[in-house]
Simulated assay, not measured.
Amino acid sequence: MAIELTKEARAQAVASIERYFRENMDEPIGNVAAGGLLGFFLEEIGPAIYNKAVFDVQERLQARVSELDLEVHEDEFQYWRKDERSSKGKK
């Protein structure tokens, strides 16, 4: 599955790469080269980050699902018990 960015996100990422090179490297990088570098990162490293994020979400969802019984549990066959409790108060 290819990782795609919106046009706006891609433009911001390319601008960020250009700025990084301007401020931290000996030579600036052009727009086309920055776009190529971004494409490389998305194809080469992006899947590792994406897979880690999916794994993290799965862990969180599994934890929430395991707590679901505690959050929505209802005791069964409570009708008569409710009646018994109210009868004790009437005596």
Rank of each mutant, 00 (worst) to 15 (best):
A2H: 02
I3W: 07
E4L: 14
L5M: 03
T6A: 01
T6F: 03
T6C: 02
K7T: 14
E8W: 06
E8F: 09
A9N: 07
R10I: 04
R10D: 11
A11W: 06
Q12Y: 08
Q12M: 12
A13Q: 00
A13K: 00
A13H: 00
V14N: 00
V14E: 05
V14I: 14
I17V: 09
R22P: 00
R22V: 01
E23L: 15
E23I: 10
E23M: 12
N24F: 04
N24I: 03
N24G: 07
D26Q: 11
E27H: 14
E27M: 15
E27L: 14
P28L: 05
I29G: 02
I29F: 02
I29K: 05
G30D: 12
V32I: 15
V32T: 04
V32P: 00
V32M: 10
A33R: 03
A34D: 00
A34V: 01
L38Y: 04
L38D: 02
L38N: 03
G39Y: 00
F40N: 08
F41W: 11
L42H: 01
L42N: 02
L42G: 00
L42D: 01
E43M: 10
E44N: 14
E44I: 07
I45L: 12
P47S: 06
A48L: 09
A48H: 03
A48V: 05
A48S: 14
A48D: 12
I49W: 10
I49Q: 05
I49K: 04
K52V: 03
K52T: 13
K52F: 11
A53G: 09
A53P: 01
V54R: 08
V54S: 06
F55V: 05
F55G: 08
F55K: 14
D56Y: 15
D56V: 09
D56K: 15
V57D: 09
Q58P: 00
Q58G: 04
Q58C: 05
E59N: 15
E59I: 12
E59D: 14
E59G: 12
E59C: 10
R60L: 15
L61E: 06
Q62C: 13
Q62V: 15
A63I: 10
R64N: 11
R64M: 07
R64F: 14
S66M: 10
S66Y: 11
E67N: 13
E67C: 01
L68G: 07
L68Y: 13
L68F: 10
L70Y: 04
L70P: 00
E71M: 08
H73T: 06
D75K: 14
D75P: 04
F77Q: 10
F77S: 09
Q78E: 15
Q78F: 06
Y79V: 05
Y79F: 09
W80K: 09
W80I: 06
R81W: 05
R81D: 09
R81L: 09
R81P: 03
K82R: 11
K82L: 03
D83G: 00
E84P: 01
R85F: 10
S86G: 02
S87E: 11
K88C: 02
K88S: 07
